[in-house]
Amino acid sequence: MPNVSSAGRTIKHKNEGVLALIIINKAGGLIYNRTFAEGLNQLNTNDYLVLAGTFHGVHAITARLNPLKAHQGATPAGTRPEPPSGLEVLETENFRMQCFNTQTGIKFLLFTDTLQTGVNEGTMRRVYELYADYVMKNPFYQLEMPVRCDMFDRKLNSYIREINNSR
């Protein structure tokens, strides 16, 4: 668990909770990115695309790594082993990244502060729900393409603002 000094705490105080959201499609392409706090370091568009592609690759590798595989018994007949979930959480001194991989292969990356104040599994599910509602039910959205839906932006912003302010 990284230590947060009291000085660091005061500086960070403004930027707590959810900092950014990235959505990656099943081919590893970036389809959505948004930041939710003031004064964050910004990446340029190209870097975002590289980040999404790299993460997609890393995620695929982590889904296959298993140091204990040899010791596991075979699954009982007629059942299937749980699909590998791959990387779920990445923690550094400065942020925490949570990855949610849907059944359809879309990845939601939520960047939060290290204490992940007010952020939990429910947050991820709610973001997925907003995506399912305001992106998938939008007649003008084309699958696998970048998300440009005003309604989604608006609802996501108000939801994130709500949890960032509620602490």
Partner: peptide
Amino acid sequence: RYVSVPRNMDQLNC
């Protein structure tokens, strides 16, 4: 409720 009209069709209302 779930419709976001793209910028290039902004005079459309479904």
